[in-house]
Design a protein around this nucleic acid. Structure first.
Lengths: 161, 161
DNA sequence: ACCGTCGTATTGACGTGTCAATACCGATGC
DNA sequence: GCATCGGTATTGACACGTCAATACGACGGT
């Protein structure tokens, strides 16, 4: 590779860009979470879970599949499902089809909350993020994310890459 | 404003870019935090606090100044300082100069940990983030962050803008 | 039948973050 | 002097996340 730059420390300028990037993205995430919970009783995590479940057959999914699909650790999902269950958004029941797993099921109430939160959430993504950028910038965001993901070795598993 | 695009929902493609962006940045943050705590006993939060304090005169700062400088809510800082104090990284003492505040002081141990973590941390920023991008992309990141910050109304207070 | 072991899900301890309520103190008005 | 108000810092309750430890059923070897 012979990269000349990798042995030196970041410059002030580079660090500033890094910090701005992280802080801005964090602020964006927080704003979006705020919008979501002001329009529905859901958090971002609840939304991700319910998004996956409502799109699944019978609004239901194996716990481990769900974790893989949304990219969460198992224990994180387990804790989160506990909280959601307490609020009546989902149910859990021993896996119907033989094996030794757990089926997670979105309740009617959970699906209702999801529907109620969905449109405002998508609108917020547009208003807070997409509207801030030109189409060229959005394409740049895509390329930059891809470069970082590749660099970090995410997306390893995908087949054809 | 008459923006033609603001009344429609995001496309699938736009949503994908959004999610990739958020997830990638989050993964980056997590990786960096992991590197930091594997090289020193510090978390990212500890690092930010100690960075501000070690650069301040007498390694000390009013609690409220500190919160403003690193952009944290007061209560968040208070909780965090409690944890750092328990580990001996900082001390707190009633404000020396008259008024009714609290001085936060980096202990010798805190400064030592900061020094130990600093170089590996900066190296990790380079390796995980800066090395992933071309100079053009880094400039794009800067412009994109600026656009989003402007759009969200951050940076409001700055004088001359 | 018994013992490891692997995969799945949960749990407990703890660090982290937010929000609302509180404690504290100095200044201001009566 | 005393009530009240404003700014400062803390606290408690709770949501969220990670890590390590645990439970427990299925499976393979003996």
């Amino acid at each position: 590779m012979d990269r000349t730059h990798s042995r030196t420390m970041p410059t002030r300028e580079q660090l500033r860009i890094w910090r701005d990037h992280i802080e801005t993205t964090e602020a964006l995430r927080a704003r979006l979470a705020g919008r979501l919970s002001s329009e529905s009783t859901l958090s971002s995590g609840d939304y991700q879970v319910l998004l996956a479940l409502t799109e699944a057959p019978r609004h239901s999914m194996r716990s481990s599949e769900l974790a893989a699909l949304i990219g969460w650790e198992r224990s994180r999902l387990s804790h989160h499902l506990g909280r959601m269950q307490k609020r009546g958004l989902i149910r859990r029941q021993p896996c119907a089809d033989g094996a030794h797993g757990v089926d997670v099921i979105a309740t009617e109430e959970g699906r209702e909350e999801f529907r109620a939160g969905s449109v405002p959430h998508l609108r917020a993504v547009r208003e807070l993020f997409l509207d801030a950028l030109t189409p060229e910038q959005l394409a740049q965001v895509e390329a930059i994310s891809a470069a970082v993901r590749r660099h970090l070795g995410l997306d390893e598993d995908a087949v054809g890459r």
